[in-house]
């Protein structure tokens, strides 16, 4: 039965359910409660995170929702350390762009412990972080940096595309025993979707086939899934049935579902909001080119923004982010391709 809630509330609900279920789950981050909990004279739970995602947790779970100084290296590292010592911390790195000031604790520490310590470390840390363009936040608050995390062995990287996906994937992230980077698109927090009330975990490395089609495979990530769906409607009106595959996680990556789909459709368009060079889109393109070359009936198209920083002006930002029309055009390029 349908229960429509927002992407924001779905994430909040996942945190609430897991904190209720498992007392080792803690939440920390800048302004995660905000207000009196961190010494301000105002309300106790004033902000609940900069965009209100953790609102209400502070009152429900005393002592387990921690405000932090603006000190990402320290608290992300503390989350990693606490994970080695029996807690399941969920640290909020407010904007993914801020990885620049704490990346060492993620990729040299958390990501390496398991391997570097001979398989003896367990580091069940989750780092929730906002990514993506669309809020006119410009170059230092709008990037799509999940490819950088995907590149690092030892990290798992999640890119949920809907409220349902966000809740189930975050629950899995919290229960998972490896370090997980959970990338939330900041322009999706108010997107509504059908989400069951209870707890459920969506396993990592299992792509979701969002739409069935036999003419072209569109692999889309995060917010680009809805862009691909919009494009698919227009394509269907023109007689082209697109199959949309949402990988859900970029690491692990469900190459099997992607390859199966391309083997059937013979055409691949990848839609990725990250910068084009060394992107997940290009990675998927390369994997398909290597492993399903014989099935391809036209050149793979990768739809990404240009290789520029994210611009500020709304006119420029709207040009920057891939649109449904860009996807339609890419599909037509491959569909019309003649040797």
């Amino acid at each position: 039965m349908a229960r429509m809630i927002s992407y924001r509330d779905a994430i909040n609900e996942a945190l609430t359910l897991e904190m209720e279920r498992d007392e080792t789950v803690i939440v920390m981050g800048e302004d995660n409660a905000g207000g009196a909990s961190a010494g301000s004279p105002g309300e106790e739970d004033a902000w609940g995170g900069v965009l209100g995602v953790t609102k209400g947790l502070y009152g429900k779970f005393p002592g387990r929702v921690l405000d932090t100084p603006i000190s990402e290296s320290a608290f992300v590292g503390a989350a990693v350390g606490a994970a080695t010592a029996g807690l399941r911390p969920v640290a909020e790195l407010m904007f993914i762009d801020f990885m620049g000031v704490c990346f060492d604790q993620i990729f040299n520490q958390a990501a390496k412990f398991r391997y570097m310590f001979g398989g003896k470390a367990v580091t069940p840390v989750v780092i929730r972080t906002m990514y993506g363009a669309g809020l006119r936040a410009a170059a230092q608050h709008s990037q799509v940096l999940y490819p950088l995390f995907t590149h690092i062995p030892g990290l798992k990287v999640v890119v949920p595309s809907s409220p349902y996906e966000a809740k189930g994937l975050l629950i899995q992230a919290i229960r998972d025993n490896d370090p997980v980077i959970f990338c939330e698109h900041k322009a999706m927090y108010d997107v509504q979707g059908d989400v069951p009330e209870g707890a459920y975990a969506i396993p990592f490395g299992e792509a979701n086939v969002v739409r069935d089609g036999d003419d072209v495979t569109i692999v889309a990530l995060g917010r680009m899934v809805s862009v691909a769906e919009e494009a698919a409607k227009e394509l269907a009106a023109n007689g082209i049935e697109a199959e949309i595959v949402d990988p859900r996680t970029t690491s692990p990556l469900d190459t099997e579902t992607i390859l199966e789909s391309v083997e059937r459709t013979g055409r691949l368009v990848v839609v990725d909001e990250s910068s084009p060079r060394c992107s997940v889109g290009r990675d998927i393109s390369a994997i398909v080119a290597e492993q399903s070359f014989g099935a391809l009936r036209g050149p793979i198209q990768v739809v990404t923004p240009p290789h520029t920083p994210v611009p500020f002006s709304d006119v420029l930002e709207d040009l920057y982010v891939p649109s449904a029309q860009d996807v339609v055009n890419a599909v037509k390029t491959v569909a019309d391709w003649k040797r």
Partner: peptide, 15 residues
């Protein structure tokens, strides 16, 4: 259909 399988997996994945 694939949709049926997806819906059933949604149910099966509930705690």
């Amino acid at each position: 259909t694939r949709q049926l399988a997806d819906d059933l997996m949604k149910f099966k994945r509930l705690d």
